[in-house]
Write a protein that binds this DNA or RNA. Structure first.
Length: 272
DNA sequence: TTCCTGAAGG
DNA sequence: CCTTCGGGAA
């Protein structure tokens, strides 16, 4: 399945014209880039911005983050979600403060919490490596342009094929901006899209793959909810949340302790 | 209910 | 391959 020809210059020009002035687009400092990319994992831009500013104010570089009490890190992270990301980020800070920055995606990939996307993003934005970063936006844009689904490896190959020479940083930002602001999941704005040959232009979205229902469970009944409540309470200096069944609290605490998000001293529970 | 600049573990 | 992991907004 070949992809359609894509005018990369048109997309780059469009990006230059509409580009949102986001704080992490004002720097090439690998630490600041990494903090933004980790915060942005599965988290919308609008909600990350205030956390990003406060986090960098308190932890301006990898030495500050690496030497800080983990409880402080979790306090500034609390509310963002996926708290394990904060632990991984601090572990990254300690590693690069000790060993220096891996300057290529392959080396970054070995750091905790850094997968294929984040490694490519940091490598291209901070170090200028010519690699394509494929996040959910980029995947959706490519799938719609070619009107074809691909498994991860062929998708990565297609993304690499599209990458214009020497423009990886702007290109990756441009493709994500396109997916985030125009080619959105629910209602693609084809009228404002710079991609000329898109096979999906003006056509109705294909029916979403029927995903099997997951037990009709309310979020408040999930372990994730209890975990979040516990960490938020501890970060706020409060006791364990009341009104939740002891068995659910215990199950959540066991998972949190296994992840290193809480420390248990007998009956006492505290942040690490 | 789905979605969001994913990664790690089974 | 599958599930887990937060939380808010549309």
């Amino acid at each position: 399945m070949r992809g359609v020809p894509v005018d990369a210059d048109a997309i780059l020009s469009w990006y230059g014209a509409v580009r949102r002035d986001l704080p992490w687009r004002r720097t090439t400092d690998p630490y600041r880039i990494l903090v933004s990319e980790v915060m942005l994992q599965q988290t919308q831009v609008a909600r990350v911005v205030p956390y990003y500013e406060a986090f960098l104010e308190r932890f301006p570089d990898e030495v500050a983050l690496g030497s800080a009490p983990t409880a402080d890190v979790l306090r500034l992270w609390s509310g963002l979600g996926y708290n394990r990301r904060a632990l991984a980020l601090q572990a990254c800070a300690r590693a690069v403060a000790r060993d220096g920055w891996p300057r290529a995606a392959e080396g970054l990939r070995a750091l905790p919490g850094i997968g294929p996307y984040t490694a490519a993003a940091v490598a291209s934005f901070a170090f200028g490596e010519q690699v394509a970063a494929v996040d959910t936006n980029v995947r959706r844009v490519i799938e719609r342009v070619d009107r074809a689904h691909r498994t991860p490896r062929p998708l990565a190959a297609r993304a690499a094929e599209l990458l214009p020479a020497g423009r990886a940083a702007d290109w990756n930002q441009a493709m994500m901006e396109l997916g985030a602001t125009v080619c959105t999941a629910r209602s693609p704005g084809c009228d404002a899209c710079p991609v000329t040959g898109c096979r999906s232009r003006g056509r109705p979205l294909p029916p979403p793959p029927a995903r099997r229902a997951r037990g009709a469970q309310r979020f408040e009944e999930t372990d994730r909810f209890v975990r979040g409540r516990i960490v938020a309470a501890l970060a706020a200096g409060e006791e364990l949340p009341r009104g939740i069944a002891a068995e659910r609290i215990e199950r959540a605490l066991a998972g949190l302790a296994r992840d290193g998000l809480v420390v248990r001293d007998g009956a006492a529970v505290r942040l690490p």
